[in-house]
Amino acid sequence: MICLGIESTAHTFGVSVAEKELEDDTGRTFKIISDIRDSYKAPEGSGIHPREAARHHAAVCSSVVESALKQAGVSIEGIDFISYSAGPGLGPCLRIGGIVARSLSAYFDMKLAAANHAIGHIELGKYLTSLKNPLVLIVSGGHTALAAVQGERWRIFGETLDLTLGQLLDQLGRFIGMSSPAGPKIEKLALEGMKNGGSLLKDLPYTIKGNDVSYSGLLSAAKKLCLRGERKEDVCYAVQEIAFSTLAEATDRALAFTGISELLITGGVAANKRLAEVMQEVCKERGIRMGVIDRQYSGDCGAQIAAEGFRLAERKQFIRPDSAFVRQSWRLDEVVL
């Protein structure tokens, strides 16, 4: 089966053509044929403006769909069904993807699947790392959570109480003059702060409550350090260390609690090498397998929406175009698998 995956939850409008034999639970037949993205670029020092991002998506959507099909060498008639990101995300952005999916589905009479964006990150990660039943650490701009399947749902074994890891890095980045997404730039600066940044660790709050993390206090304290005149490189290093360590502690406990023997890291921040290094230590001590989603597909993309689309298609969970919805808030543990 061939699926057209449409992603538009935040800054990226992405379309992917992907193929998979249904009922193949090894995932070996899953193939990304094309994956095209066009991202809204926020001005330096500011974040994503939902309306501006939606305007961007509306402007590029038809050309992105076209080039995804063209690169895949597939005509629109060759597509078996459409999967679109129905949430969670920014309302105006979600609606553009929703409109594109609904229109194509109605006009070409194609089946339609409403994908949860977070589960998309997870499903794509599972295919690309060949992990079967992992504890998932999903880290992105919209999510920071530890999840594992229990019964017929994803159950959360720890999550952020306020900011996500992506938001923490983005907001710190913006404060020191970068534009979103700031994660990769912060990672680079942090490398230069490795030598001196250690001295700042004791000035930053390390918050873990039960098995949940909290980053808002860390962000405020980091901003204060910047204002105090500390080097950006050192602050970036210290913030990364604290944020990743709290997450590692929560992951360590969740692994102990669930007894799961695989860890999957997915979502935009999965591209951070230091995070992978930290988690590798956790896994090494427990002797378990770790898989990190390929850097190329860690960020938002149509392929993740296609991956979740296949899961829905296998369960025949299609919807009619006139009942297609978008949901800004849609927890991944609400989805009945």
Partner: peptide, 9 residues
């Protein structure tokens, strides 16, 4: 001691 976090921290 936990190896997953930097020694300082």
């Amino acid at each position: 001691a936990k190896k997953y976090r930097s020694e300082d921290l």
